[in-house]
Design a binder for these strands. Structure first.
Lengths: 214, 214
DNA sequence: TGTACATCAGTGAACGCGCGTTCACTGATGTAC
DNA sequence: TGTACATCAGTGAACGCGCGTTCACTGATGTAC
């Protein structure tokens, strides 16, 4: 999809001296807003962001080295947000398995609410440059670690076998909720069963199955 | 990623009269090969395909209305291939649960072997036009129906409860293997546990859990 | 057996597009004296 | 209190790129007479 250009983009008044950093925040906000509104990473071009802020394209380069850096920063914010809503939801119950359910639901809900961010975070081709990879890995791990902790809590509570590897179980649960989330995003017209029930049923079945495993 | 252009693309000899259809097949083959080699849908441009075949870009339009139609046809072939390898693998055991395991493994293996095709089929933004959607839905369903049948076999064999809805269970199992497959593709550098064991464990846990469900 | 002709299978050049990025510049604003 | 000046926060125009697609054409090939 190509971006539509405004005939006369409204011009933002130039920042006063010492307030140049204001633009940086506005660029990030505009980039995220474009991602939400267009639902298309391709539409978030340097020119489109500049238009949205009311500034000329070269002004972007006063605050970001290149396009990669801009997108990366937007992703970092989304990662933080996903981690935040997951933690918040998980705090909704003191029962570790119920907490895991809530966490799973929140994860899927984040994907539904921010499909293009989710796509960039988890469904994109891995970046070509090592720099991107490092940043990606660190952030994935940060978010993932909380899930591993949640699995440990289930093991401690006896809902999962004492001998279970928390990391492996976390990977399995991640794959599970990611599978639901990404399919909902990619195939919105498929006749899906009720979403929350799907998440709950599958998580429950998995936890039960792992609990009774060989 | 931008495609590199060859300085002097080798020229394909013109087909003889009545053999114009040969080019169609060569175009499809080249498009699929480009998808495999570059691992990037963006690299499969009309010009790149034409270069690969040894023909000029307008020649493509003698056989395909536009780019969309060309990509769609490549996808259809991949869908058929995925269905074929799944069925073949599933035939490897007469035990319905073991058969399901084999099917799951084959599905994941297909994704690993054809990451860019898998991405186009299952991880892409849903197409904007109704035409694309229809074709997509039909093909998804064709492949999906075999999974529903496999679930029915498990129910008949008593491995899953008599009251289970085969469609819902199939959706859950699809989400499960898709989750593993798509994460392996998107995050190849994540420290994944052994792949086949992951698929088997998760599928088994899920089937056990569903069997002992409320 | 020869030749005019229709057709098939393409070619070559160009269209307008949006993209990321660079470069030389400008004009308002605060500050030193 | 006034003014020269450095600096900050941008602008305007252009670069070369690859893209999908269109259009007028051409040259080999088979066929009808």
């Amino acid at each position: 999809m190509r971006a539509r250009r405004l005939a006369t983009p409204p011009r933002r008044p130039r920042a006063r001296r010492g307030e140049g950093e204001l633009l940086r925040g506005q660029i990030l906000a505009a980039a995220e807003r474009l991602l939400m509104e267009t639902g298309d990473e391709e539409a978030v071009s340097i020119r489109a962001v500049a238009d949205a802020v009311g500034v000329t394209p070269p002004a972007i380069y006063l605050h970001f080295a290149d396009k990669r850096e801009l997108i990366l920063e937007v992703c970092a914010a989304s990662f933080a947000e996903l981690d935040r809503v997951s933690e918040e939801a998980a705090a909704g119950s003191s029962d570790p398995v119920e907490s895991l359910r809530l966490r799973g639901r929140a994860y899927v809900q984040f994907g539904i609410d921010h499909p293009e961010q989710y796509r960039v975070l988890f469904m994109r081709r891995p970046a070509a440059t090592p720099d991107d990879f490092d940043a990606d890995r660190v952030r994935t791990a940060a978010c993932f670690d909380h899930l591993v902790d949640a699995v440990r809590a289930c093991i401690s509570a006896g809902a999962l076998p004492k001998g279970a590897d928390p990391f492996v179980v976390a990977v399995e649960l991640w794959a599970l909720v990611h599978g639901i989330t990404s399919l909902l995003i990619s195939k919105p017209d498929f006749p899906w069963p009720a979403r929350d029930a799907l998440v709950d049923d599958l998580l429950d079945a998995c936890v039960r199955g792992l609990a009774t495993g060989t």
